[in-house]
C-alpha cells in the first residue's frame, strides 16, 4: 500500500517548506506547486489524497482556478483544505476552510487525519 499523499498549492515558498518538511518526516508523499495552474496539473497527474490550497486574496478566491480545484476534489474524491477566505456557494461547497494566519500544528493534524481516512 502506497503512502498517503498530499498536494500543497501555496505561493509562499516558506509555507511549502514547512509543510513539506514536517509531512515528509511523518511519512506522507508531498507534491507542491507555487501556482494554481501548476497545482491542477499535479492534482490530475498524481490524484493526491489531500489538496491544501492557499487562497491568496485577489487571486484564486473566486476564480476559475478555485472552481477547478473544487471540481477536481469532487471528481477524484480527495479532501480539499482551503487556507484563507473563500466564499461558500456555487464555487466551493464542501471541504475544510482554515483562516489565516493559521497555526501549523492543527493544520498538520487535520492533513494527517484526512490523509489517513482516505488511505
Amino acid at each position: 500500500m502506497s503512502a498517503p499523499s498530499v498536494l500543497i498549492v501555496d505561493a509562499s515558498a516558506e509555507n511549502r517548506e514547512v509543510l513539506r518538511t514536517v509531512l515528509g518526516r511523518r511519512g506522507l508523499t508531498v507534491f507542491e506547486a507555487e501556482a494554481a495552474e501548476q497545482g491542477l496539473e499535479l492534482a490530475r497527474e498524481h490524484h493526491p489524497d489531500v489538496i491544501v490550497l492557499d487562497v491568496e486574496e485577489k487571486q484564486h478566491a473566486h476564480s476559475a482556478a478555485g472552481q477547478q480545484f473544487a471540481d477536481e476534489a469532487d471528481a477524484s474524491g480527495c479532501q480539499l483544505i482551503v487556507l484563507g477566505k473563500i466564499r461558500r456557494g456555487p464555487v466551493f461547497t464542501g471541504g475544510h476552510v482554515i483562516s489565516k494566519p493559521y497555526h501549523f500544528a492543527p493544520l498538520i493534524h487535520t492533513i494527517e487525519q484526512l490523509a489517513a481516512k482516505a488511505a
Partner: peptide
C-alpha cells in the same frame, strides 16, 4: 499577516527539530 504566518512556520519547524534533535530542521 503573511509575515506572522512565516514566523509561525519557522517556529514550528524549530519545535519539530528540537523534539527529534534534528539540527538541520
Amino acid at each position: 499577516k503573511n509575515i506572522l504566518q512565516g514566523i509561525r512556520g519557522g517556529s514550528y519547524l524549530i519545535e519539530e527539530g528540537l523534539k527529534d534533535n534534528d539540527n538541520d530542521v
